[in-house]
Deep mutational scan, measured.
Amino acid sequence: ENVVSAPMPGKVLRVLVRVGDRVRVGQGLLVLEAMKMENEIPSPRDGVVKRILVKEGEIDDTGQPLIELG
Score class of each variant (00 low, 15 high):
residue 1 E to M: 13
residue 1 E to N: 13
residue 1 E to T: 14
residue 2 N to S: 13
residue 2 N to P: 07
residue 2 N to M: 14
residue 2 N to E: 11
residue 2 N to G: 11
residue 3 V to L: 12
residue 3 V to A: 07
residue 3 V to P: 05
residue 3 V to T: 11
residue 4 V to C: 06
residue 4 V to Q: 03
residue 4 V to K: 03
residue 4 V to A: 04
residue 4 V to R: 02
residue 4 V to Y: 02
residue 4 V to D: 02
residue 4 V to P: 03
residue 4 V to E: 03
residue 5 S to Q: 11
residue 5 S to K: 14
residue 5 S to A: 12
residue 5 S to F: 15
residue 5 S to E: 09
residue 5 S to N: 11
residue 5 S to I: 14
residue 6 A to H: 03
residue 6 A to N: 07
residue 7 P to F: 06
residue 7 P to L: 08
residue 7 P to N: 08
residue 7 P to C: 09
residue 7 P to W: 07
residue 8 M to R: 08
residue 8 M to P: 04
residue 8 M to V: 09
residue 8 M to H: 13
residue 9 P to M: 10
residue 9 P to C: 10
residue 9 P to H: 10
residue 10 G to Q: 01
residue 10 G to K: 02
residue 10 G to W: 00
residue 10 G to M: 03
residue 10 G to P: 02
residue 10 G to D: 02
residue 10 G to I: 05
residue 11 K to W: 07
residue 11 K to N: 05
residue 12 V to Q: 00
residue 12 V to K: 01
residue 12 V to Y: 00
residue 12 V to P: 00
residue 12 V to A: 01
residue 12 V to N: 01
residue 13 L to W: 00
residue 13 L to P: 00
residue 13 L to S: 06
residue 13 L to F: 00
residue 14 R to S: 06
residue 14 R to D: 07
residue 14 R to H: 08
residue 14 R to Y: 03
residue 15 V to Y: 05
residue 15 V to R: 00
residue 15 V to S: 02
residue 16 L to D: 03
residue 16 L to V: 04
residue 16 L to C: 11
residue 16 L to Q: 04
residue 16 L to E: 03
residue 17 V to A: 01
residue 17 V to N: 00
residue 17 V to E: 02
residue 17 V to H: 00
residue 17 V to L: 00
residue 17 V to M: 00
residue 18 R to C: 12
residue 18 R to K: 14
residue 18 R to W: 03
residue 18 R to M: 10
residue 18 R to Q: 13
residue 19 V to I: 10
residue 19 V to K: 06
residue 19 V to F: 04
residue 21 D to H: 05
residue 21 D to L: 06
residue 21 D to P: 00
residue 22 R to A: 11
residue 22 R to M: 12
residue 22 R to Y: 14
residue 22 R to G: 07
residue 23 V to W: 02
residue 23 V to P: 00
residue 23 V to R: 00
residue 24 R to A: 11
residue 24 R to P: 03
residue 25 V to C: 12
residue 25 V to E: 12
residue 25 V to P: 07
residue 26 G to S: 04
residue 26 G to H: 05
residue 27 Q to R: 03
residue 27 Q to H: 05
residue 27 Q to S: 05
residue 27 Q to E: 08
residue 28 G to L: 13
residue 28 G to I: 15
residue 28 G to Y: 07
residue 28 G to T: 15
residue 28 G to F: 08
residue 29 L to R: 00
residue 29 L to D: 01
residue 29 L to Y: 00
residue 30 L to M: 09
residue 30 L to T: 01
residue 30 L to K: 00
residue 31 V to S: 01
residue 31 V to L: 07
residue 31 V to H: 02
residue 31 V to R: 00
residue 31 V to Y: 03
residue 32 L to S: 00
residue 32 L to W: 10
residue 32 L to C: 06
residue 32 L to F: 15
residue 33 E to Y: 14
residue 33 E to L: 14
residue 33 E to C: 15
residue 34 A to Q: 10
residue 34 A to H: 15
residue 34 A to G: 10
residue 34 A to P: 01
residue 36 K to Y: 13
residue 36 K to S: 14
residue 36 K to L: 13
residue 37 M to W: 07
residue 37 M to I: 13
residue 37 M to F: 09
residue 38 E to H: 09
residue 38 E to V: 10
residue 38 E to I: 11
residue 38 E to P: 09
residue 39 N to M: 15
residue 39 N to C: 15
residue 39 N to I: 15
residue 39 N to V: 15
residue 40 E to Y: 12
residue 40 E to W: 11
residue 41 I to C: 06
residue 42 P to M: 11
residue 42 P to W: 08
residue 42 P to S: 11
residue 42 P to V: 14
residue 43 S to D: 01
residue 43 S to I: 03
residue 43 S to Y: 03
residue 43 S to H: 00
residue 44 P to D: 06
residue 44 P to C: 06
residue 44 P to M: 05
residue 44 P to E: 04
residue 44 P to A: 04
residue 44 P to L: 05
residue 44 P to G: 04
residue 45 R to Y: 13
residue 45 R to T: 10
residue 45 R to N: 07
residue 46 D to I: 05
residue 46 D to V: 06
residue 46 D to S: 10
residue 47 G to P: 01
residue 47 G to S: 05
residue 47 G to W: 02
residue 48 V to C: 12
residue 48 V to I: 13
residue 48 V to W: 14
residue 48 V to N: 04
residue 48 V to L: 08
residue 48 V to E: 06
residue 49 V to A: 01
residue 49 V to I: 12
residue 49 V to M: 00
residue 50 K to H: 10
residue 50 K to Q: 10
residue 50 K to W: 07
residue 50 K to T: 13
residue 50 K to V: 14
residue 50 K to R: 12
residue 51 R to K: 12
residue 51 R to N: 09
residue 51 R to F: 05
residue 51 R to E: 08
residue 52 I to N: 00
residue 52 I to A: 02
residue 53 L to I: 09
residue 53 L to E: 03
residue 53 L to H: 09
residue 53 L to F: 15
residue 53 L to R: 04
residue 53 L to D: 03
residue 55 K to F: 12
residue 55 K to I: 12
residue 55 K to G: 10
residue 56 E to D: 09
residue 56 E to W: 09
residue 56 E to L: 12
residue 56 E to H: 08
residue 57 G to T: 05
residue 57 G to K: 04
residue 58 E to W: 14
residue 58 E to P: 11
residue 58 E to V: 11
residue 58 E to I: 11
residue 58 E to S: 10
residue 59 I to V: 12
residue 59 I to Y: 14
residue 59 I to M: 12
residue 59 I to K: 07
residue 59 I to L: 11
residue 59 I to D: 09
residue 60 D to A: 15
residue 60 D to I: 15
residue 60 D to T: 15
residue 60 D to C: 15
residue 60 D to E: 15
residue 60 D to R: 15
residue 61 D to C: 13
residue 61 D to Q: 14
residue 61 D to W: 14
residue 61 D to Y: 15
residue 62 T to S: 11
residue 62 T to Q: 12
residue 62 T to R: 12
residue 63 G to L: 08
residue 63 G to R: 08
residue 63 G to D: 09
residue 63 G to I: 05
residue 63 G to Q: 08
residue 64 Q to T: 14
residue 64 Q to P: 04
residue 65 P to Y: 06
residue 65 P to R: 06
residue 66 L to Q: 02
residue 66 L to D: 01
residue 66 L to G: 02
residue 67 I to K: 02
residue 67 I to W: 03
residue 67 I to G: 01
residue 68 E to A: 07
residue 68 E to T: 09
residue 68 E to V: 15
residue 68 E to R: 04
residue 68 E to Q: 08
residue 68 E to F: 08
residue 69 L to Q: 01
residue 70 G to A: 14
residue 70 G to Y: 15
residue 70 G to C: 15
residue 70 G to I: 14
residue 70 G to R: 12
residue 70 G to F: 15
